[in-house]
Design a protein around this nucleic acid. Structure first.
Lengths: 351, 351
DNA sequence: ATGAAAGCGCTAACAG
DNA sequence: CTGTTAGCGCTTTCAT
């Protein structure tokens, strides 16, 4: 910066003012400085300026992985938004428990960011407390933390809606498939199970734990086993609600392998509305990670500029049922119920 | 840091040495300092230290988007690797031409990172030149730039292999579907087209430009049109090589809509081997973005530590054909060729 | 509107 | 093994 000052024949202070776009610089001086800066290929060092301003110009982001539809969409939407605000994004990828412990022990974001966006983690009380004394705004996305700024969709209500759709179609034996230990993703998963149960209870359908199956994420074999458990029940389900589109895709693929028609024999419903849902013509519940990301970033910027503003605000974004081709009324009920259950009569096929 | 020094009863230098893990600190002093640091919730400011060391401890990453299988997998693999090296990752998402111009104009990474990883961009000469005077190692991933460190798969050879697989199955009318303006992703796409043409030429099959169709990325309607163009040809293809799995999925979905069996009537081959390829039982060419990412990061770390080492090195990673259920021999040849083409005889079905 | 000087928090070079 | 001193490159008073 001293070089630029010398070349432009002004003081470092003036260069600084120019680079920051302050108005108190006469047009001709500004032009000279900018010219000199260009010639010398000069750019302000964030390090040095943040040392004195106390601001880093960095938005930190904590994610369990980047290798997922949700994270990809959410973080992509952050890019332009942050650039506009003159900020950069540093990403902490914390895929497993070891890395997680290490992150919360060292808290590398401390002093190196102006705000932290925490995505999709199911945090312990201790972890949340630890983030509290980070001396920067912390925003939680896809989870709600009492008294902290959070941005999420109402997974309970969404899963409830989804299950109700199946009930309205006439289904009574509805399975719920969810992933476990999904790299800290469990928060939403748990909530969706609650919503599923709630809808059944409201409709007077008894809960049956045999209808709730789990599988590791992205594990073809795990899915096969889970589906196998359902197909070997005394009374198998006529519909499967998979808690993620990817899981739904895997379930459908398994069912097709054994020639069980979807949706004629078994309906399948997903959650997310990824691109693949369209290809598969998969009925699902849509949520928008990019909207979540943007809302969180806005909130963060607000809190950075005005730390006194309401820290406890929760933003809840909408979800939508997207009915497509993988959900339909159930096939004709088994014989022993003849005459007692006429709900699906209109569309049921006789054997 | 001064506070910690005072509390521990030592000088700031000693605190600095302790925090950096230098050996020249006696165990008891080290213990005292660490204790004091913990009590005061102290963490070293990267900003301040980089001001004097000249190192930022930051790996910059330039990507067109994060919302893709490739980028997600590649960047996820970087996380732990960088943490181990004590570095952070800042991501520049540059999704369109406006942002791109702005990025290359300002070069925000300058002075704010120790190395830059450039993913998947098809750069102009000017852009490459601009990155050259960034005063840091720049590594190119999924593209090769003359004389600059690059990490990629041989897309030409891979596409050639893939096309050969179709030829070996007996196909002669083989279409190539690729995306255009895919947010700067075009490099690989172009190379794959070259490989496709090369395989055909080697096999003595004449090139037919009508068999090469394009579509915007992730555009269902675009795919439908592209497939429509192929299906309305005087002599439609018996196989379609889609340059990405996602595109292949979309193509298959379109074909199924009009009841064209895959692979009985038309074979479909993808590229990438994403998770979805398994669900769809899609034949494809596998590449590993995480291996690419890791190799690039290693190379970057090497260059940071020894700027004199060979800057022109290119690392080429392998690809593998994954034959699955969407490729098969073509159906019986049309009548006018009766007796002239017996290649697919063994598996062809008579009409 | 511009310049001079002080100092942000840290590390490095030198003494001891 | 530890302390002292001098900046790193910038912004920010405070003058002018």
């Amino acid at each position: 910066m001293a070089d630029v000052a010398e070349r432009a024949g002004v003081s470092p202070s003036t260069v600084s003012r120019t680079m920051r776009g302050l108005t108190s610089v006469s047009p001709d001086v500004r032009a000279r400085v900018e010219q000199a800066a260009r010639e010398l290929n000069f750019a302000v060092s964030r390090q040095a300026s943040s040392l004195v301003t106390g601001r880093t110009g960095v938005m930190a982001v904590l994610v369990p992985t980047l290798d997922s539809w949700f994270m990809g969409a959410a973080l992509s939407s952050l890019g332009p938004l942050l650039r506009e605000a003159g900020m950069e994004m540093t990403v902490y990828v914390v895929p497993d428990l070891a890395e997680r412990a290490e992150f919360f022990d060292r808290l590398p974001a401390r002093r190196n960011a102006d705000a932290l966006l925490v995505f999709c983690f199911d945090l312990t009380k201790e972890e949340t407390a630890r983030l509290d004394d980070l001396a920067m705004p912390v925003i939680y996305i896809s989870q709600h933390v009492e008294g902290r700024p959070s941005v999420y969709v109402d997974d309970v209500a969404a899963a409830c809606k989804a299950t109700r759709h199946l009930i309205n179609l006439g289904h009574r034996r509805i399975a719920f498939a969810h992933t476990v230990n999904a790299r800290g993703f469990s928060f939403s998963s748990r909530e969706r199970l609650v919503g599923y149960r709630q809808a059944l209870t409201e409709a007077g359908i008894p809960l049956d734990d045999d209808l709730v199956v789990t599988t590791p994420p992205r594990d073809k074999r795990g899915t096969t086993q889970a589906v196998g458990n359902l197909l070997s029940l005394r009374e198998p389900p006529t519909a499967i609600f998979a808690e993620q589109d990817e899981l739904a895709a895997s379930v459908i693929s398994t069912l097709r392998t054994v020639q069980i028609d979807v949706p004629q024999r078994i309906s399948v419903l997903g959650f997310d509305d990824q691109l693949m849902a369209e290809w598969l013509d998969l009925s699902t519940v849509a949520q928008s990670p990019s909207d979540l990301g943007r809302a969180a970033a806005h909130l963060a910027l607000e809190l950075i500029n005005d730390p006194e503003s309401d820290h406890g605000r929760h933003i809840v974004l909408p979800t939508h049922l997207i009915p497509r081709g993988t959900t339909a009324p159930p096939p004709a009920p088994p014989r022993e119920q003849e005459g007692t259950d006429r709900l699906s009569e209109g569309t049921a096929r006789t054997r």
